[in-house]
C-alpha cells in the first residue's frame, strides 16, 4: 500500500524549544482530498500548517508531502500554496506582479505567466483588478488574489489558514462556495484550518478534529454529505450538532483556566 499523499506522524512542535504546541499529531491526507483541520483558537492548528510548509522545524516526528520530507531544508520539497488569515500581498506591487513574483520564484516559464495569472484571476472573478494596487481592493478581493497566488504556482498542496475569518459573513459564504467549485475544477489537495465547525463540514471531505493545545488529533470525521452542499443544509446542521456534542468536553471551559 502506498503511503498517503500528506503523511504526518508523531509531529511535535514548539516555538521556544520547551513548551509544546503540537504534541504528537498524526494525520494522513490523500491526493486531491479536501481536509479541514478543526480546533479551538490557539490549539496549534496554524503551527501544523507552518510545519507542513517548511516554515517551522518540528522537534519530533515527520511530515511528508508526495513522499518528500517537508521538515528539512531540501530544495526538492514540493511547492506549497499558502493562503494566510490575512492576504499578505505586497502593497507596492500590483495584483498581477504579486503573482508574477511567486511564479518567478517557483521557476515557472515566463511565457506562461500571463495565461496563469489571467486564468486564476478570472476564476476568482477579479480579472478586472489585474493591474490594481492591492490596498485599493476590498478585504474579500485581496483574499481572492491571495488564493489566486497560491494556486497559480501549481502547488502540490494548498494550505489555508482560516482565510475567511476576517471577512463579513456574506463575502465569506460566497468565497467558501467559490473555493469548493475551484477545488472541484482544479483537483488540488487542500488542507483548510478553521475553528468553525460548520465551515469545516461545508467545505471538506473529512474533518480532523484537534484537542486543545498542545494539539493531538482527537478524531477524524468523514463528512457523508453529497455535493453540492448548501451552507444551511439540515444535514450540515445535524453533523455540526453531533461534533459540538463530541468536542464540548474537550474544548470547553475547564475549571481553573481563564475564560
Amino acid at each position: 500500500m502506498s503511503p498517503p499523499y500528506i503523511d504526518v506522524e508523531g509531529l511535535k512542535a514548539s516555538y521556544d524549544g520547551s513548551r509544546l504546541v503540537l504534541d504528537g499529531v498524526d494525520m494522513a491526507v490523500e491526493e486531491n482530498e479536501f481536509v479541514a483541520v478543526l480546533g479551538p483558537s490557539g490549539c496549534g492548528k496554524s503551527t501544523m500548517l507552518q510545519v507542513l510548509s517548511g516554515l517551522l522545524r518540528p522537534v519530533a516526528g515527520r511530515a511528508t508531502i508526495a513522499g518528500k520530507d517537508m521538515t528539512g531544508s531540501s530544495s526538492d520539497r514540493p511547492r506549497v500554496g499558502y493562503v494566510f488569515q490575512d492576504h499578505r500581498l505586497l502593497p507596492w506591487r500590483t495584483v498581477a506582479s504579486n503573482i508574477e513574483l511567486v511564479l518567478e520564484a517557483a521557476g515557472l516559464p515566463r511565457r506562461e505567466w500571463d495565461a496563469r495569472i489571467d486564468r486564476y484571476l478570472d476564476i476568482l472573478q477579479i480579472g478586472q483588478f489585474r493591474d490594481a494596487w492591492p490596498m485599493r481592493l476590498s478585504g474579500g478581493q485581496r483574499q481572492r488574489v491571495s488564493i489566486a497566488r497560491a494556486l497559480a504556482i501549481d502547488p502540490a498542496v494548498v494550505l489555508m489558514d482560516e482565510p475567511f475569518s476576517t471577512l463579513d459573513e456574506v463575502t465569506a459564504r460566497t468565497m467558501r462556495q467559490q473555493l469548493v467549485e475551484l477545488w472541484q475544477e482544479s483537483s488540488r489537495t487542500i488542507v483548510f484550518v478553521t475553528h468553525s465547525i460548520r465551515e469545516a463540514i461545508f467545505l471538506a471531505d473529512r474533518v480532523a478534529i484537534l484537542t486543545r493545545g498542545p494539539a493531538r488529533v482527537l478524531e477524524d470525521v468523514e463528512v457523508p454529505i453529497g455535493r453540492p452542499r448548501r451552507y444551511e443544509d439540515a444535514e450540515i446542521t445535524e453533523l455540526e450538532s453531533a461534533i459540538v456534542d463530541r468536542v464540548m468536553g474537550v474544548w470547553g471551559y475547564e475549571e481553573g483556566t481563564p475564560a
Binding site: L101, V102, A105, A106
Partner: peptide, 13 residues
C-alpha cells in the same frame, strides 16, 4: 514579519 513568512513559504530566496 508576516511578509517574511510569505517570502519563506513561496521560497523567494
Amino acid at each position: 514579519s508576516q511578509l517574511d513568512e510569505m517570502s519563506a513559504v513561496y521560497r523567494l530566496g
